[in-house]
Amino acid sequence: MIQIDIEKTMISSQGRMVLEVGMQITSRELVALFGPSGAGKTTLLRILAGLIKPDKGRITVGSTVWFDSSGNIDLLPQKRNIGYMFQDYALFPNMTVEENIRFAHPSNNRKEVRDLIETFGLAEFAKRKPSGLSGGQKQRVALARALARKPSLMLLDEPLSALDAGMRISLQNEISKAHHLFGATTILVSHDMSEVFRLAGKVICLENGKITSTGSPEKVFSDTSISGKFQINGQIARIEKQDIINIVTVVTGHHIVVKVIALDADIENLHEGDHVLVFTKAFNPMIKVLHR
């Protein structure tokens, strides 16, 4: 169990913002931190890693206190036993893929390094330097390297943001596989709803430094009061007026585009960029007597 209760004043491009977060994460859970850019997601991840010091608060992981402003405790990143995946992957350019992973392994155990290389399908370019790898390959190396230390907490900072749609899906599977295989508690920063749906068991929404909602992705992203049989989440890409109706284009995930017809009254509250729920009640169950 990880208990986080911290406060940190940040100076961002939008001015001063106070990151104020209190949350609990169960062991072995995969949690997504979701929210718009500038909400404080990465800062929160860096605070957990010990790369940024909060102004006040307390972080405990199991029975160990990682940070406590009142007790003057601030564990170094080196002492936190974490795996951190950076947005730019931060692979060491002077080392080959294998050396990157071996460097991360605490006891330099050749067999375990070999196993990690095999698990993430890195064998054929194990002797290559990071500069000769594609974005997806780099991501897999970064993931393997972060796991080499057998961390009790994995922190993934928008690991898939730089990749194209096809690559995303396959690497989402890698992250999912890593989570099942190694069982580390994982916190994933994302601003992609479909990614959160695919990977996370729990989502924590962060906006302007505050938690706005938390729960399962289905619960957080769906309005359960609507008893639709079919519902998808998406983001409004465009609202076009055609004669007396409007066509709202909603993009869900990375592939699906849904066009919804709406009347003027319907679009009053809709704006481009809004996160919306598209649902239909067209598939209502019918009932008919067969025998009496």
Partner: peptide, 21 residues
């Protein structure tokens, strides 16, 4: 990039190991 240093720290490496390696 700062993340190189930070990556080494999160992998448990000391400042001197990070500097030399």
């Amino acid at each position: 990039s700062d993340s190189l240093r930070e990556a080494a720290y999160t992998l448990g490496k000391s400042k001197s190991v990070t500097f030399f390696r």
